[in-house]
């Protein structure tokens, strides 16, 4: 794939470039930097990539001229404003996949409104990780796949709950109080964590039934 990255040589940009290389080692990776210093640094750090020096206006022209060849455009400079302008241009000229990396998660809606469907939020792991570690009971949304169809939730019960979910719709895994993991889960108790993976609606229905069963003591 021909992937064009406007990296800004930030920490996020560097990580993104390395990851894009990993995603398609055989592909063509073009890093664009706005200044002589940054493009020199990018050449040194990523010798396997093609590095271009272009300022904001030059890059917008470049996107327009080469849109028919670009497969993916990734914007990860340290300014959401410039990332937004580039993404908007890339979408307008028909680049098939446009991916901004947010600097401020509050700008997510702005990018969504412009028509970007894949938005990388580097801060997205803060909430689930902290909740998974610290929340005493209840549901925690841990992961949502790219097209929002597959989700992974954790559930920490306050008392023993019997699981009644149709086979095949969702996958259960439980981590017991002693740290061992169980794949065939029929019930889950306090101090244990239940992980539910599946299609979004099925997981929602499953957790609703778990909530409904909460409080019903399981005999034995």
């Amino acid at each position: 794939m021909r992937i064009v990255v406007f990296s800004g040589m930030t920490h996020t940009g560097g990580l993104a470039v390395a990851t894009l290389r990993e995603a398609d080692p055989e592909g063509k990776l073009i890093i664009v930097e706005p200044t002589v210093e940054k493009s020199a640094a990018a050449k040194k750090q990523f010798p396997w990539a093609e590095v271009l020096k272009k300022n904001v206006d030059e890059f917008i022209e470049y996107l327009k001229e080469t849109a028919q060849l670009i497969d993916v455009f990734v914007a990860c400079s340290d300014s959401d404003a410039v990332n937004y302008r580039f993404c908007k241009t890339a979408l307008d000229v028909g680049v098939p996949m446009v991916i901004p990396v947010l600097n401020n998660p509050l700008n997510r809606e702005l990018f969504q409104r412009s028509g970007v469907s894949i938005i990388v939020n580097p801060y997205a792991s803060i909430k689930p990780k902290l909740l998974e570690a610290l929340k005493a009971d209840g549901e925690i949304s841990l992961y949502e796949s790219l097209n929002s169809q597959i989700v992974l939730h954790a559930y920490k019960p306050t008392s023993r709950v019997k699981l009644e979910s149709p086979e095949g719709e969702v996958c259960f895994l439980a981590v017991k109080a002693d740290g061992s993991t169980v794949s065939k889960v029929r019930e889950v108790d306090k101090n244990e964590v239940l992980y539910v993976l599946g299609v979004k609606d099925a997981v929602r229905r499953c957790l609703e039934s778990v909530r409904a069963a909460r409080g019903k003591r399981v005999s034995g």
């Binding site: 794939m1 021909r2 060849l69 497969d71 993916v72 028909g94 098939p96």
Partner: peptide, 10 residues
């Protein structure tokens, strides 16, 4: 296999 089918001809 192409993501951007516009470049197929080229």
């Amino acid at each position: 296999p192409l993501l951007n089918v516009l470049k197929a001809k080229q």
